[in-house]
């Protein structure tokens, strides 16, 4: 079986892929695009490795007059960054697991045409995308009703579902899980849970990986929840640490009348950029973990083992 497929795939290979000339053109165009995407980040990284005095004097440059590790020394000297990293990691992992579970089950039921409440639940999940109670509404629910002030759950629970991801996932289920498959399983006497776990989940891995990635990004980038729900800097996730620095700089440089009392302690530009680099790298490193579910689509499809 395996062999047969392989030979079939190989013989069809010249149809299964673009011409070498198109390949070259596409590779180059994508290369340019990728270059444009990465240039600003490289600039940010270079700034983080420059001496803050040379930034003050000459502005940003791809070729700084003076390299320096001072920003990273400051960033790592304080144990805060490691603590923040730990919190971000815990929040992201727990949140992503809960979120994937909640959304995949919910979206799965939406994809089942025989489900009687499907229509209602569809609308039920679209409304929150359009109407939201805003910051005050959420604040009262999290703080007064759920009493989650200063709890790590206040940073996890409010973000674990999103209409967008549910709809993405629902569309995936509809595209990749044939109704006939479910019906035949049903006839074979499989329960809904068995169908969901044994048939649906394995078939929809790319979709799950997509929303898992979105959840990861959402949690990793979130800082507003921490700003609102955490007092006394008890839990400072990585992004929040960065936003704190940026907001402080922004605030103090536009409110000069505040009194100059504390501007001396402001993080320099190089330190802020170093935190950008430090907070972005973990996700970039984690990315390939999700990537293996998206890549290798069509062309290798025929020869995939």
């Amino acid at each position: 079986m395996k062999d047969e497929k392989k030979t079939l795939g190989e013989s069809l290979n010249r149809f299964g892929r673009v011409t070498p000339k198109s390949n070259r053109i596409l590779t180059i165009l994508l290369g340019i695009l990728s270059f444009l995407s990465v240039v600003p980040f490289i600039l940010v990284a270079i700034i983080s490795f420059s001496s803050s005095m040379s930034i003050k004097k000459y502005g940003y440059s791809f070729f700084p007059k003076q390299w320096s590790l001072e920003a990273y020394q400051t960033v790592f000297a304080d144990g805060q960054i490691f603590k923040s990293f730990g919190y971000s990691l815990v929040i992201t992992v727990i949140g992503t697991i809960i979120g994937v579970f909640l959304m995949s089950t919910y979206a799965y039921t939406l994809s089942r045409k025989t489900y009687a409440y499907r229509g209602f639940l569809n609308k039920f999940s679209v409304m929150p995308m359009l109407f939201s109670g805003g910051m005050i509404g959420s604040y009262i629910v999290v703080i007064n009703i759920l009493q989650l002030r200063n709890s790590i759950w206040s940073l996890i629970l409010p973000l674990c579902m999103s209409t967008f991801s549910i709809m993405v996932l629902r569309t995936f289920y509809q595209m990749s899980v044939p109704d006939a498959l479910i019906e035949s399983a049903y006839i074979d006497g499989a329960s809904e849970w068995q169908i969901y776990f044994k048939i649906i989940l394995p078939l929809s891995l790319p979709g799950l990986a997509t929303i898992a990635l979105f959840l990861t990004l959402g949690y990793w980038n979130d800082w507003l929840s921490a700003l609102l729900y955490i007092d006394d800097n008890k839990i400072v996730p990585l992004q929040y640490l960065l936003i704190k620095m940026q907001n402080n700089v922004e605030f103090l440089s536009t409110n000069t009348s505040v009194g100059v009392a504390q501007t001396g302690n402001l993080p320099t530009e190089t330190i802020r950029m170093a935190v950008v680099v430090v907070s972005t790298l973990p996700v970039l490193i984690a990315y390939p973990f999700f990537q293996k579910y998206f890549i290798g689509g069509l062309t290798v499809g025929a020869v995939k083992e």
Binding site: M103, T105, F124, M127, G133, L146, L157, M161, I166
Partner: peptide
């Protein structure tokens, strides 16, 4: 039952705060 956890989540975190509108 499969959709219930999601329903509860939406009720608490999306619909409950909506009164503030």
């Amino acid at each position: 039952i499969l959709s219930l956890p999601g329903i509860i989540w939406f009720a608490i975190f999306s619909y409950l705060p909506m009164f503030a509108i």
